[in-house]
């Protein structure tokens, strides 16, 4: 039997619960490493789906990367895409169901290396979807290789002496690139390394879902995250390293925001 809101509220009062797993997040133990940002990013997305009451209208697309099993945790209909193709898969879904809320969840290798073409063209077409881009400047699942967003001099398992610009090129600011496209409706860069940043990231995701209803283009939320395991750091250290190294190169904040006129009907 489902509980009424009154019953749930009463239950909350009794238990003095101040924070709870949203109903849209499955009761499963996540496979992510301790301190990894994926868990927080999953949670805030699912909180938004829960709070907007759109679980029945939402379809998510998981990438290839550490978050390949996002559908083990997100209690919504989901599809697992081939590496880099999440926005193409999402396009297929959204074009058939324009009224659904469709989002992709992709890492830096998936979205900004192997999937660059799909990413750019989906945004260029202004597909009415939300793209959540988790950038931790490294390949997690395959064991810590260089990502397109790996910083110059950053050590990875395939840049053991640090990323050298002459050999490996430059870290790709794909978010800024995408913001140049007319199809991009809302482009922002957030992080999940501090409580205040988590709240800001959640607000961005809320915008990303809400504004799909406007049918005015793609919403793109980059989340700068960490990888304690492959960075070879403790979780707290990794968040400090993120602050001191990633954020100066990938500054947080909105890059393209809709005008007030654009969103007045939201």
């Amino acid at each position: 039997m489902e509980k009424s809101i009154q019953e749930i509220e009463h239950h909350y009062d009794e238990m003095n619960i101040v924070c709870e797993r949203p109903a849209t997040l499955l009761d499963a133990r996540m496979h992510y490493c301790p301190g990894c940002g994926h868990g927080v990013a999953h949670r805030i997305i699912m909180e938004v789906v829960d709070e907007l009451g759109i679980q029945e209208q939402t379809v998510g697309v998981a990438p290839v990367g550490c978050s390949v099993f996002a559908y083990h945790y997100m209690n919504i209909d989901m599809q697992e895409a081939a590496h880099g193709r999440a926005t193409a898969v999402a396009t297929g879904i959204k074009r058939c169901y324009p009224d659904k809320y469709v989002f992709t969840y992709q890492g830096d290798g998936d979205l900004a290396a192997i999937g660059t073409a799909e990413t750019i063209h989906s945004v260029n077409r202004g597909e009415n979807m939300l793209i959540v881009f988790i950038n931790n400047a490294i390949y997690g699942m395959t064991g810590g290789q260089m990502a397109p967003t790996t910083l110059i001099n950053q050590k990875t398992s395939t840049t053991p002496y640090g990323r050298q610009q002459e050999v490996m090129g430059n870290p790709l600011k794909i978010t800024e690139m995408l913001a140049m496209l007319p199809g991009a409706f809302y482009v922002t860069r957030q992080a999940v390394n501090t409580p205040v940043n988590v709240r800001r990231a959640k607000k961005a995701i809320l915008n990303g879902f809400n504004w799909q209803k406007l049918n005015k283009g793609t919403c793109f939320v980059e989340i700068v995250s960490n990888c304690p395991t492959n960075w070879g750091m403790k979780p707290v250290e990794s968040n400090k390293w993120l602050e001191e190294n990633l954020l100066p190169f990938f500054p947080l904040g909105d890059i393209k925001v809709p005008s007030k006129e654009d969103i007045e009907h939201a």
């Binding site: 895409a81 193409a88 898969v89 396009t91 074009r95 073409a117 799909e118 063209h121």
Partner: peptide, 20 residues
């Protein structure tokens, strides 16, 4: 009906639509 940016994108759009 959509002209995709490549055959790679086309087939993955097919995957998404078929999955839905």
């Amino acid at each position: 009906i959509l002209q995709a940016e490549s055959e790679v994108a086309s087939i993955n759009m097919v995957y998404g639509a078929a999955g839905a």
